[in-house]
Design a protein around this nucleic acid. Structure first.
Lengths: 206, 206, 206, 206
DNA sequence: GATGAATGAGAATTCATTCAT
DNA sequence: CATGAATGAATTCTCATTCAT
């Protein structure tokens, strides 16, 4: 058996490198040479791990998606208390970590920006991921609706709002980081998230 | 006298074409040939109006910004009633028009994607525009704070929130239009916007 | 009858402009727009006078040749005294005027440099001119050989030498004008020219 | 390890190809495709060795200069006898080799043609070379002036003359090769060179 | 497996030339 | 006749991909 571990390590390094380079230059703007350089590898060797530039993008997006989605979903799922509180706590968590995600998000934004409309595998992958996230969150909300007796609460709309806000904040964190920091300290984001959900407002504020 | 064509008309047509092609393919992915084709023009002729691809992007961004910003600012400024109501009404207006902006916004995502990079003229243009928008909105909010006696209301944070939400929705309208439509009918966006601002909540709902 | 004079004036202006632009940029480097601009004319109008860029070059070269050759030939022909003296006087005349010719020469050098080898009409024109000049000079020298009884004097070789020296000096006047000025004051050029021709040396020095 | 080709060999081959193509078409007239074709290489590969067309010209000029200058300087320096004789011998050597240099020189005329222009690296390179050549020759002449007691001999002017003549002959060899051959057999060039320098004339003739 | 030189299709840009006005 | 907008072929340069070593 050849060294399987090495292959995985190399592959990861390439994805990290790709993430950085895509963030910096966009998909079309990035070159395989840049990715190879950053990964400390040769251009030719790169093709041992990814069969093409498109494949590299796909692999990168996949890795990012897996990492990002599990984490936050776990958090939301595992915390206790009424939905409103949980959402508020989740919101805070996001605010605190958003800058750490900035590079990944910047990279994916580049990718969306360039491939948003096409019928590429990437578009499908990202679309599927988006829908999966929404579905998961919605299930969670629906459960809360039942357990907390929230009547007439449009769970899907709430979920979509929250995701839109997060997208908007990711953009802001990149475009205007100082403003973003100012904003994240104002406590307005958790408040707003909580405001979407019926229930006692007091405990929600950070 | 040479072929008489209104240069402004031609320029506008090129911007429209660029808007479409950038939206479809991303900035790097778009070719001058595509833009020229769509505008019913030759590659070479394009350079009579824009000195380079970068310049074309800049001109396009400028045009979009001018169109988008004035319109919504006017609306917000001209409407009557307490701030909370005005914001709610504004929110509805945006929701109703956001799909009409989808192409423009899709194209603008390309532009956002460029933002991370450097000291390009485009970065400056967009940064300036963003700050101007925030400032204008903030002034408006500050006036309301005084006239309505809203104490301790963090106007800038509110403004930033609203802009982030709009950004997020623009993205959503492009990525997942069906979801977006569902969402826009739920009345949650105006409610959320209004929830950011202290004041009577009843009249805000659509 | 249309105004024939105007046409000639315009044509001359274009040739002057072309001379300048070719000198500055070389033939391939020069653009019709530059020539038109310098002549205070439109690109399109230029084609009323010259059917193509090649034709413009040809016309320009022709004009230059006519101007340059007649002048110096006349001088040589009209002056009195033994050949050696006449050549020395001619040499001085050239030195004095060489800087005035620099632009023309620079222009033609550009052209030679770029088109020297091809079988173009220009090459033929220049070649024909060169040979014509040599022939004229040689005839003159031959006459002097007879009238002055210079035996065994290789007139053609002498003529070729003189022309080579002049070419070399034209180059030098452009490449290193200060050196050239220094040189032209040294009196070495007339001395050298005269040295080629048998005869009394005393009167030759300036 | 990649395809093993000596980079230096490849580079030299490209310079040879460029030399030929520039000579044939002029700098502006030459295309990278032509150079690549002649070198038996692809357009793209060329850019592994030279970063741009300008850089290729620069590299070519550098190579030519190095080759041309050392050779003739060595000859002049190493020969014996009074200066006049050495110069005459040098002149003969040049005549004999000038046609071999014709291609190189033809290519270099492209370079000279660029000289009028600006502060380009090429201009600096050539200017420096020209001045260096003149200085070296002058030093040699100065030494002879001392050792041979030649009084009042304007060495710099003599050097400049010789260089001008060589330039002129190079041009002639290209424009009118048959004439040039005729001329070179006449023995007039060494005689003329020698004539510039005081001293016994007898032994100088070939 | 890894390397990087070589390939060549493709993109931005320029410019001689045409032609509607 | 003059104009200058429009055309499109040609050119420089880039970069994903291949492949000899």
């Amino acid at each position: 058996m050849p060294r399987v571990v090495d292959r995985e390590v190399r592959r990861s390094a390439l994805i990290q490198a790709a993430l950085f380079v895509f963030a910096e230059n966009g998909y079309h703007g990035a070159t395989m040479q840049q990715v190879a350089d950053r990964a400390g590898m040769s251009k030719g060797g790169l093709y041992e791990y990814f069969s093409s530039k498109d494949d590299l993008l796909l692999g990168t997006a996949e890795a990012v998606i897996n990492e990002m989605s599990e984490e936050s979903m776990q958090l939301l799922r595992s915390s206790e208390g009424p939905l409103r509180q949980r959402v508020a706590r989740h919101a805070e968590y996001i605010l605190e970590n958003i800058e750490g995600w900035a590079e990944v998000s910047q990279s994916m934004r580049q990718v969306w920006a360039e491939l948003g409309n096409a019928e590429s595998p990437l578009t499908k992958l990202l679309g599927a991921h988006y829908r999966r996230s929404v579905d998961q969150l919605e299930t969670l909300f629906d459960e809360a609706v039942v357990s907390e007796g929230l009547d007439n609460f449009p769970t899907r709309a709430a979920v979509l709002t929250i995701m839109a806000v997060i997208d908007g904040l990711l953009i802001q964190a990149v475009i205007a980081p100082e403003e973003f920091r100012l904003y994240s300290q104002s406590g307005m984001f958790p408040r707003m998230c909580a405001a979407l959900i019926p229930g006692p407002i007091d405990e929600a504020a950070s």
